[in-house]
């Protein structure tokens, strides 16, 4: 039996570094999936929010949170899913966007997604920084990405969609 004396901030810090299962260079904190940690009675309640409604990573993230906390002697953990406020790419930090670009995924380049469609937006190639890129498909390998190609270096790449 491990005795623990951790506050909610410690618990938050323990799980903040969990990588996103699909884009392992960024963490659940970077993405804004990790919303809150509370101590209710003797149970740590962790609130997470999905990027897209059907994000298949939620179950895995929940398991990882429980595993990490269990390794630190915390077994009374509840993971709750919230839809409000709805997740938005506005929550991605500049640091997270830089990590995405280094990984080869073009980060969402403007914060407002209120416009219905933004086909005219300029997407910069994460490989060669060219602004001459074109959309191949609005839907990519995961719900949060669209498929682009670079007209300069000819590489295809993912765009993390503004959402």
């Amino acid at each position: 039996m491990v005795t623990v004396d951790l506050n909610t901030q410690d618990v938050y810090n323990l799980i903040a570094g969990i990588p996103d299962p699909e884009i392992p260079v960024i963490t659940i904190k970077d993405l804004g999936i990790l919303r809150d940690v509370k101590l209710v009675d003797d149970t740590y309640t962790v609130t997470i929010t999905p990027t897209y409604t059907a994000c298949p990573a939620m179950g895995m993230i929940e398991d990882q949170i429980k595993e990490i906390l269990s390794n630190h002697g915390i077994d009374k953990v509840k993971v709750e899913l919230t839809y409000t406020p709805a997740w938005t790419t506005d929550w991605l930090s500049q640091e997270a966007k830089a990590k995405l670009k280094n990984y080869g995924i073009a980060p969402p380049n403007h914060s407002s997604c209120t416009k219905l469609f933004s086909t005219a937006e300029v997407v910069v190639c994460p490989q060669c920084n060219s602004r001459h890129t074109s959309l191949i498909s609005r839907f990519g390998s995961t719900a949060c990405k669209a498929l682009y190609k670079c007209d300069n270096c000819k590489e295809t790449f993912d765009l993390f969609k503004c959402h």
């Binding site: 897209y52 409604t53 059907a54 298949p56 191949i136 498909s137 609005r138 990519g140 719900a143």
Partner: peptide, 16 residues
């Protein structure tokens, strides 16, 4: 690309 698109829409629907 359409295979990806239609199944992405399907996934959104299942999540909803």
């Amino acid at each position: 690309e359409e295979d990806l698109a239609l199944t992405n829409v399907a996934l959104d629907m299942i999540g909803r």
